[in-house]
Design a protein around this nucleic acid. Structure first.
Lengths: 109, 109
DNA sequence: ATTTTGTATCGTAATATTGCGATTGATAAA
DNA sequence: TTTATCAATCGCAATATTACGATACAAAAT
């Protein structure tokens, strides 16, 4: 035990959880905010801005790439990162739906 | 090492990350979806629906309570859970803002 | 008072995540 | 060719998370 039992959940639930992981760490939130704010790609500047070791930042970037919400383009010797618009839009919709469905919460009475 | 360096991030970034954790596990997504769908409070039925041990479900409920996105009301011997509308709204706004800010992504060229 | 019911908590094991120094690798610059 | 630069990856340590059986607890029912 210790590993998530993905088999017992729906594809959708696993997918939402995976997407949410992009935002579930402050470093990744910070990275995404920077990428959004600059509207263009930021590279190793991230390391300077973030007060984390280069290896750590690189690891978070890797996780964000795995999720698909950012993409990197090699521009030697630098790597240029940016939001992946498609996945970003998908995330927007996913969370939008999640939150839109709730109205008239009458609770525990 | 192994612990998140919360000190180096803004309150807002830490807060977003914490909120996102509510959705960063499929079991918690499932619980939230159930609570939203029934519009009323669900109790130990969650255990039946979820194919996870009672202790595990209880632990996820505790985490959701810690985040504040759900609340529990004791109705002995049952406990009635429901979405906390205030925090839910806060989450809606937080993620809404996060996603609204992005437009015209011109990337890595 | 005893039993039953539903839930929280404890203790523990397995696994995942976070963070970083050190190294590697690839390319540009010298 | 050698050196410098930037980023990815490796290896490791510390900590967090996930999952569950067992137990504890509280209130209702008997």
């Amino acid at each position: 035990m210790g590993a998530t039992k993905t088999e017992v959940f729906t594809e959708q639930q696993n997918s939402i959880a995976d997407l949410a992981k992009a935002f579930a760490h402050p470093a990744r939130v910070a990275i995404l905010q920077l990428l959004v704010a600059r509207k263009a790609c930021v590279c190793g500047d991230l390391v300077d801005e973030l007060d984390l070791a280069q290896a750590t930042v690189s690891q978070h970037l890797k996780e964000l790439k795995r999720i698909g919400i950012i993409q990197g383009e090699i521009n030697p010797p630098r790597v240029c990162y940016c939001i992946n618009p498609e996945v970003w839009e998908e995330a927007r919709q996913t969370f939008g739906q999640m939150f839109e469905t709730i109205t008239n919460v009458t609770c525990c009475n």
